[in-house]
């Protein structure tokens, strides 16, 4: 039995167009040997959760610089629960105030990364926290 590469789904929720960071991360995680599925922007929570099931991903990474994370992340977490894929590691990046972090953890977001976060640190966080699946 060999470990398959970590599969990461990346995308942006809502109408936010700031996609520089998420695209850089897509390349960066790929360079770290992960399989990256970049879905793009203007996605709904339903779309993200549906693809997460179809692609059997280990990680969902959401990038939000719109300030709407406290409205959109609960909706995403609900879709994840409904599809019974709560073992997926959920990581959020962007302009997220520290004061929102406890509430985000509470709703099941595992990692929060803000501006200035390094790719290596995000990759290391994913490796340490991802639930191991073997293929």
């Amino acid at each position: 039995m060999s470990e398959r590469p970590i599969r990461v789904l990346l995308g942006k929720l809502g109408l936010d167009g700031h996609d520089r960071g998420v695209k850089v991360l897509a390349k960066g995680l790929r360079d770290h040997g992960m399989e990256v599925i970049y879905l793009g922007m203007r996605l709904t929570p339903e779309q993200i959760a549906t693809v997460a099931v179809q692609e059997d991903v280990d990680v969902i990474g959401i990038s939000l610089l719109s300030g709407a994370h406290m409205r959109l992340m609960p909706a995403l977490m609900e879709e994840i629960r409904r599809r019974e894929i709560s073992d997926v590691l959920v990581v959020l990046g962007g302009t997220i105030p520290e004061s929102d972090e406890p509430a985000l953890h509470q709703m099941g977001v595992h990692g929060v990364f803000r501006l200035g976060a390094e790719i290596d640190d995000i990759a290391a966080f994913i490796r340490e926290n991802v639930p191991r699946k073997v293929g």
Partner: peptide, 22 residues
């Protein structure tokens, strides 16, 4: 805000959480 920039009214479901935000 994003809904205005992308051509949606504030009451549109796609505008959730982004009305008057940025």
């Amino acid at each position: 805000d994003h809904p205005t920039l992308t051509g949606y009214d504030s009451t549109d479901p796609l505008a959730l959480g982004e009305v008057g935000r940025l």
